[in-house]
């Protein structure tokens, strides 16, 4: 199989380039893209990429594979390879540090901006704060986010305004706290988001939904936030 991989080492390359490498894929095995990267690295140890859990829960290896963002460790070749060719690039829209490793500071900054922690100004009880199963269910589809950045880096609005638009991942997390019955800072959270950019730059393109490796739906969460902001202003 032909693998075309994005290469850039700031210490020796003037510009990034695509390197074509032929890889022998063992017969009868449906490897994951991450396995292919391991095979590449055995041939050329200078190839750089992030990886950790290799089971789709840590969010380290978000990459662009044949044009679509996803996690290398849970993307089987059978799903992504076309005409015996695989093109691997770093997540689009973020500065590249080296090869497939991007600088995620902007992405994390947007996450931090939404105050991604529970705020509750009432004194904590001696046990847990009670929450009904129905209220807890509201967090399903939100808390599972692994911060892999596949969604935000697939979003044209985030490419355009990565400093001002929170992006699908950050907004999914914003809603995760807005929806938590144990949180008391709803108004403060909404006030923080109430500007033309933070939420309203979302144009409903839904690339985020189509690439999320955890099957989450940031567009839906953004819709909920929009509604809350509208209600707040009337």
């Amino acid at each position: 199989m032909l693998v075309s991989i994005y290469r850039y080492n700031p210490e020796k390359d003037q510009t990034p380039f695509m390197e074509d490498i032929n890889i022998d894929i063992p017969e009868g095995k449906d490897l994951m893209v991450l396995d292919v990267l391991h095979l590449l690295k055995e041939k050329d140890s200078s190839v750089a990429y992030r990886r950790s859990c290799r089971e789709g829960v840590c969010g380290s290896d978000g990459l662009n594979m044949n044009g679509k963002n996803g996690l290398a460790c849970i993307t089987p070749l059978s799903d992504v390879v076309k005409k015996d060719k695989l093109v691997i690039r770093p997540l689009p829209g973020l500065p590249v540090i080296r090869d497939l490793v991007v600088d995620m500071s902007m992405f994390y900054k947007q996450y931090e901006k939404i105050k991604p922690f529970l705020i509750n100004d009432t004194p904590a009880p001696a046990i847990e704060r009670l929450q009904s199963p129905e209220d807890r269910e509201k967090l399903d589809g939100l808390y599972e986010c692994i911060l892999c950045a596949c969604c935000s880096t697939a979003c044209p609005s985030f490419w355009w305004n990565p400093d001002k638009f929170v992006g699908p991942s950050g907004l999914l997390q914003a809603y995760r706290f807005l929806a938590d019955s144990r949180d008391t800072a709803q108004d403060e959270r909404l006030a923080d988001l109430d500007d033309p950019f933070s939420v309203f730059r979302c144009r409903g393109i839904m690339n985020c939904v189509s690439v999320c490796p955890k099957g989450l739906n940031p567009t839906k969460a953004i819709g909920h936030i929009r509604n809350m902001l509208m209600q707040r202003s009337t």
Binding site: F117, L118, A126, I127, E128, R129, L130, S132, P133, R136
Partner: peptide, 18 residues
């Protein structure tokens, strides 16, 4: 464990909310 709940950990719940 209660500290983790207060920190926001989304534990699954019983009918009693625990």
């Amino acid at each position: 464990v209660f500290e983790l709940d207060h920190m926001g950990l989304p534990f699954s719940r019983t009918e009693e909310g625990r």
